[in-house]
């Protein structure tokens, strides 16, 4: 449970996951933000107004998955690194997971990395498809990982293979 070990439960996740029909249509943002804390940069970052206005800054983000096109602006601005974009239409066998990444060195497209779940456990391999970095990202880069379809709701981090 989140409050005890920092890992959201299946019930927590069920509240924020887009409907399967929406996931079948292409990239969409998922805010894994489960606590009322005073924070609203995701709302201000969204150009499509897909994140509902905050009546109170302590509200949790509510993403209208129909309006969201998975652009990833909010992924970059979330101070909690809690927003991910999942695209299950990437290919028949693979889905894309776009995740915020603040470690160096950055991977390169084509690199094969160890895919990590929310518990910090290795769950398989992932291929780096794209790395959004540069000054405008202000240190919070977005790494696009191609993962097996059945891992698209598991993989939320990765580790580079040990070469330094």
């Amino acid at each position: 449970m989140l409050a005890e070990n920092g890992v959201p439960t299946g019930e927590d996740l069920a509240q924020v996951l887009p409907a399967p029909e929406r996931l079948a249509q292409g990239p969409v943002a998922i805010a894994e933000c489960f606590q009322k804390i005073p924070c609203d940069p995701c709302y201000h970052s969204c150009l499509r107004r897909a994140i509902a206005p905050f009546a109170d800054i302590n509200e949790r983000p509510r993403i209208d998955h129909e309006k969201c096109n998975g652009c990833g602006l909010c992924v970059n601005r979330c101070p909690g690194l809690a927003i991910f974009v999942v695209d299950q239409t990437y290919s028949d066998s693979e889905a894309l997971v776009k995740l915020p990444y603040e470690f160096l060195p950055l991977p390169k497209p084509g690199d094969v990395v160890t895919a990590i779940n929310r518990l910090g456990q290795a769950v398989g391999k992932a291929r780096v498809v794209k790395v959004q970095s540069g000054k405008q990202m202000d240190g919070t880069n977005i790494v696009w990982l191609a993962v097996p379809q059945d891992l698209s709701m598991e993989v939320r981090h990765f580790k580079m293979e040990e070469v330094r």
């Binding site: 989140l2 920092g6 894994e32 804390i37 910090g120």
Partner: peptide, 14 residues
């Protein structure tokens, strides 16, 4: 904040 906790846990810190 739980988002901070989740971030270190997935990076491998129990």
């Amino acid at each position: 904040y739980w988002v901070h906790a989740a971030k270190v846990v997935r990076a491998g810190v129990p």
